[in-house]
Amino acid sequence: MTAAGTDRILGGFTILVFLFILAPMVSIIVFSFNAERYPSLPWGGFSLEWYRAVLTDDTVRRGLGRSLRVAAVVSVIATFIGFATAYVDYRFRFTGKLGFLALATLPPTVPVLILGLAMLSFFSLIDLVGTLTGVIAGHVVLCSPFAMALIRMRLAEMSPDLEGAAWNLGATRWATMRSVVLPFCKPAIFSALAITAAVSFDEFMIAWFVSGLNETLPVRILAMLQGQVSPRINAIGSIVFVITITLVFVAQVLTTRKSDKETR
């Protein structure tokens, strides 16, 4: 077989794989604008009815509001913890460092079901069940390792002489942190904010166990699905999809831009 023929087959196969992955999302978006009640072809005509229904539904609006609030707070706290952990790893050598790093990266490797259950039983001891604070605490645990991983990658590119150079030029430890380490990590910090916000915004299991009556949007969606299959789900799905993909896209742009710009 010729090389060009192989290329064409591989290209076709790649397109098929992407179609397969994207088809459900595309169908959700397409049918969210469908005037018909049931997602069937042919299309019943363009309509914003389901978006109107969703945006006027108080439970959905409150869920969305809670999810956005939680995501905002979680992204800030998780990125701060992630930065601090990554910097400790970069800056210091100490016994038990391997254990420290293993602990710091542990949460996403625990099945979320277990994590959610554990948090439910622990939070009930300290009266956090049913509060947004509880959801935030749970999401911070889950999200911090992602922030750490991103910032750690960035710090690995920082010349070990850079901090020394700042001290040598009269900057104290704090001034060095403010004027050298943070500016150097800025792209990674912003992408960590975006990624952790996206993870928190989408997270269902912990929120389901912990949120109680303070339903976040994913919990609300499941509750709606259990009641009835309504095209409103398509509209909510499209909104969630757009928010998440925007955050991930922002993170992606920030991460790739820094790497082709700086060769140290």
């Binding site: 010349s159 002489d161 850079l162 020394g164 150079a165 030029l169 050298v180 500016p183 150097f184 800025k186």
Partner: peptide
């Protein structure tokens, strides 16, 4: 005692 580094150690974001 400012120093000139072998790696130059310039701040890439400035």
């Amino acid at each position: 005692m400012p120093m000139v580094w072998q790696s130059y150690a310039l701040f890439p974001f400035l």
